[in-house]
Simulated assay, not measured.
Amino acid sequence: MWEGEANVEFVEKDVREASLKPTEGRVKSLRPFAMQSLSRKGPVFADHNSIYSKEARPDDISFPSTRFYGSKRRQLTWLREEFKSLEGVTALDAFGGTGAVSHLLRDLGWETTYNDIFEFNIISARTLFSDSTHRLSEDTLLKFLNRVRPTEGFITATFEGLYFTTQENMWLDGFMACLPSELEKNRDLLLHCLFQACLKKRPFNLFHRANLNLRHSEMPVQFGNRSTWNKSFDTHILTTYREVQLAQTARAQSIQVTSGLCAGKIAPGFDLVYLDPPYFKRAKRNTETYLERYHFLEGLARYDEWPSLIDQNSSLRAIKRPYRLEWTNKQELLVNLQHMIKKHSGAKFALSYVADEEPTEEELFNLFRENFDRVRLSRRSFNRVLSKKRPFEILLIGQ
């Protein structure tokens, strides 16, 4: 399959349309791109027989549910199929996010290193890839929650009328006031559960707009539900705790978690580097950054510093710039990718992105062809929340 100086394999799979036939649908739209590539460099292998469709199904890899935009949790079965034939020992998940792919790589036997630029993700990763629920029992968690008393503090004074009700803001202040009295080894787990509770109580699970009015509106809900929004923080925290506990029951070897580095500053030495960078929408001049979407969680993660991080000119009380800005410029994404490939020369690379966005699929494909002898392009269609379109997720693997 990989014969020749520069080999490319195309695999396109649709998990939405069970009626799609091997010679119909999006194969036709992919063919001109394949032929154009063929004329520039080396032979192209287009595996049309393996282009099939199947119904979406629950993933068979145990990992706690998350409410983050762009999470790969629903794609783990597909990614497992793509990664299982790769050889090597050490793997880097450079934009770790929820940690779902790190979890998968560990499950496949890789000695995995998780990295992310944001503190709230680092805290969650330290929670998920440890024995945190063994150190903090459910009974101890409930006793902690019972000690929380609503109080007027920084959150109440700063975020009135934005993301949560006044009473909920006071409860958050009470939670954060109790946290320092808890053992340091238990704080990560408590914060991770709080992060997930905050997301569940938010319309759209984001903080890029206030949207508190949607919780009080009588209009039909198009995303999320009022029952979830109106459940207490305690209830959501307990649910998340139990999910983490279940995932840790079958935990294999641990995953190394960095201190939170810029991806470009991570030292080389890995056999596989997986990249899931921010996506940039082609139709928009500016795409909301992850910091804009989750600044509230980052504030909770850096609670003592939060007052000094606030942009006082922001109506949303977002974190001011510059703050850990990484890969936030669409014009620089290809340059950043090239830098990573050169820095980790000799490593296999896997890149997740979305088709029909910027940079284009063809630009990303050409970047891989210029840097690797063997390239595999796999595409699958997944329904995405907050989107009326059904875009193809793409996975490029270069060796």
Rank of each mutant, 00 (worst) to 15 (best):
D356A: 09
K54D: 07
T133Q: 02
P220H: 10
E82P: 02
D47P: 02
S29C: 01
A347P: 04
S352H: 07
P64M: 06
S345P: 02
I255H: 01
Q399F: 10
P180L: 09
K72V: 08
Q331K: 10
M1V: 12
H236D: 05
N115Y: 07
R226G: 02
M170K: 15
S387G: 04
F392I: 08
T166Y: 13
N7I: 14
E363C: 02
R379M: 08
F204W: 11
H216L: 15
V257R: 01
L162Y: 04
R282C: 03
I155P: 01
T258Y: 04
S181T: 12
T158L: 07
T140R: 12
A355H: 09
N383L: 14
Q167L: 11
V375Q: 02
S217E: 15
G224S: 09
K143A: 06
T158H: 07
G97P: 07
I255R: 01
C178D: 06
L337I: 12
E87T: 14
H103K: 08
R379K: 15
A197T: 07
F83D: 02
R80C: 07
E168G: 02
H208P: 00
A250G: 04
R26C: 05
K343H: 11
S259D: 11
R209D: 05
T90Y: 06
G96C: 08
W306D: 01
D276S: 09
R376V: 07
E119A: 09
M219G: 05
K185P: 02
S381H: 06
D234A: 10
N286F: 08
G346F: 13
K342Q: 14
R369N: 05
P64E: 05
E152W: 05
R135Y: 06
L333N: 00
V375I: 15
E12P: 04
N115G: 07
D311Q: 04
S71G: 13
R149Y: 08
Q256Y: 12
D93Q: 03
A263Y: 02
Q312K: 13
F204I: 10
H295C: 01
F118N: 05
E358Q: 09
G109I: 14
Q75K: 11
N230V: 12
T258V: 09
L214M: 15
L272Y: 03
Y323P: 01
H48C: 03
K13L: 12
S259K: 11
Q36I: 11
Y294P: 03
S381L: 14
K265P: 00
N286Q: 10
P150G: 08
W306F: 15
E362F: 11
S387D: 13
P32D: 01
K281Y: 13
C193M: 14
A56K: 13
D304V: 13
G109H: 10
R80Q: 14
P277R: 04
R209A: 08
T258D: 03
L38S: 09
Q222K: 14
W2P: 02
F144W: 08
E9H: 07
F154E: 05
R380Q: 06
Q196A: 01
Q222I: 15
L172W: 06
G99V: 11
P277D: 05
G109R: 10
E288Q: 10
R31L: 15
S53M: 04
G70K: 12
D356S: 10
L190D: 00
L162C: 07
E9V: 15
E55H: 04
N366G: 03
D276A: 03
N115V: 11
F233Q: 00
Y274C: 00
K284D: 13
N49I: 09
A56G: 07
R242G: 00
T156L: 07
E243K: 01
